[in-house]
Design a protein around this nucleic acid. Sequence first.
DNA 1: CTGTTAGCGCGTTCAG
DNA 2: CTGAACGCGCTAACAG
Lengths: 349, 349
Amino acid sequence: MNEKPVRLSDVATLAGVSVSTASKVLNGRGRVSAETRRRIEEVAERLDFRPNALARFFATGKSQTIGVVTSDAPSVFALPVLLGAQSALGKSEMATLLYSVRYDLRGLGDVVRRLRARQVDGVIVVGDSLESPLHSISHDVPVPVVYALGVSEDPRDISVTPDGRMVGNLAVQHLLDIGRPRVVHVAGPATDLATQDRVRGMLATLQGAGLELVGDVQYGDWSRGWGARAASRLLDQGTVFDAMFCGNDQIATGALLALRAAGVRVPDDVAIVGVDNLASLVRQPDGLITTVDTNMAALGEVAAGCLLDAGSSTIEPGVHYQRCSLVLGESTTGARPGAPTDEERYLPI
Amino acid sequence: MNEKPVRLSDVATLAGVSVSTASKVLNGRGRVSAETRRRIEEVAERLDFRPNALARFFATGKSQTIGVVTSDAPSVFALPVLLGAQSALGKSEMATLLYSVRYDLRGLGDVVRRLRARQVDGVIVVGDSLESPLHSISHDVPVPVVYALGVSEDPRDISVTPDGRMVGNLAVQHLLDIGRPRVVHVAGPATDLATQDRVRGMLATLQGAGLELVGDVQYGDWSRGWGARAASRLLDQGTVFDAMFCGNDQIATGALLALRAAGVRVPDDVAIVGVDNLASLVRQPDGLITTVDTNMAALGEVAAGCLLDAGSSTIEPGVHYQRCSLVLGESTTGARPGAPTDEERYLPI
DNA sequence: CTGTTAGCGCGTTCAG
DNA sequence: CTGAACGCGCTAACAG
């Protein structure tokens, strides 16, 4: 556990060459005879040589490190983004420095100071919703910044965020595909950018099929309670519909409960699609709700990729939209793939 | 954004002193006259001097950085632990390097290599359940390691984990306090260490009150479906009980649904307590389930604290148990604190 | 109390 | 093709 670390000079002397030659070989630079190369590599291997990253960073001025900034109390969505980014960066021998700031992403001054002090090579700012734009720090740090799971207030910044229109599109297209043309939409807050994009995608898809939304968009919040109330109200009003697109899985769950409590069969009478694949995020997938997965891990990877390319290639500034995908569940199919036995079956709530 | 950084030598020359004097002042070391001290600080301030952390680390051999290792696909519980640790470390100007490894925490070899290369000053290994012990890497790295949200396979390591007995204790004590002596327990898997500890705490508390558990412990999995099935079965068997302690909130939710579906009033006929405060973890608290919060953020902070103290003070090896706390909800109180209006009220499922 | 001197371990010229 | 020499920015002994 505690042999003192072997240095490049150790390798060099043991291989009978100078430090600089060893350096060249181990970094693949410069032309060196195959023989000495082999010898150096062999010695390095044998000694289990690990270059002191700190010294290397210091010498090169690059830290091979990017800073990831997140809120102090982020939503569940932040974790997969973080890990996706970490995974992508790790492949390039980059490390991920994690910072959190209190609540909103306002008080960034202190974090910016730390990021600069540590000479990070880039920064990813991870938001936790699309309620409001992310505060831009691109002009406070001398390295590339990308914004994930949110949109920077500065349109010249690079932001990566779920494709809300595609969410609306996939959800409604699925409902149409299974023969449910009478769609209602129980959404989250009207002011949320995610809500707005999903509505656009939904309306475009309906229009493309020559259909219209049943009634107005029902705006509310993101809670299960809102989903239940909205469903009850629709029933009370005598609205006729055979499909429901909900702003997230919480709303969908609430709506499903209310509908079944009122004797409406799901999915036989009404099919329901949610958004987020929340059950899978909390690692307890139960296949209950058909949902649109916003692929947060992939989003994190893309954000990291943008950062890595930011220097070399030309990534266009602006908002990049992350594709999402449909995950089937009982709320539209009526049965889970790999249907369980009765004993295993989840209670049909 | 891009003036070239000011170095310590810049500050020194402008203040008319040598580099080392400036260094001493800005690090609070050595005795320096108040006058020169003031002058140096003033210049540093004016120039907005930020020491190059990389250079400092290199010179001192310490990276002021700790590595946090988590699973590639961690449970929701990992995020608060991560952030709690980050927060505690940040107060000591320590940074947090995030690493994830595939699935289980086995393939740690590569991560260990990176941790060593970057000269981290310590490591926190974050597990994602108590199903199985965490693989010990304490002998693979030359710095202190603590294990959080899991227990190291090596009893000489320091592990920080939720206090499962206290969970059982708080839950059952609350049920007894509200006058419910006939308690059943719907648990998670029998093999899970968390389950076992909770059972012990529960039984001890019952015994202390001169009571016995109603029936056997019902072992199952962590799902909502299991909670529902267990509740139904208890009813079918004619078991008489007025309180239910569930292994987590998912189980509790399933049980609650099944009971209400069978015409049993909750909490009037049966009071329910869960574990995890899951609703709050996913940032959509709805006050439905009375639950035991395992205080994951605090656990992360404690783990970080252990690491910081590991060198200086004497932290005893072994398992440290993190205190938990009770969070009241409708499933035992019958009404949420700050009861909502009818319109705001969540659907009583 | 302050300045001088020497590294920390590696990358990178530039001579040989 | 190889090696000697220097520098990255800062800290830490040791002199003055």
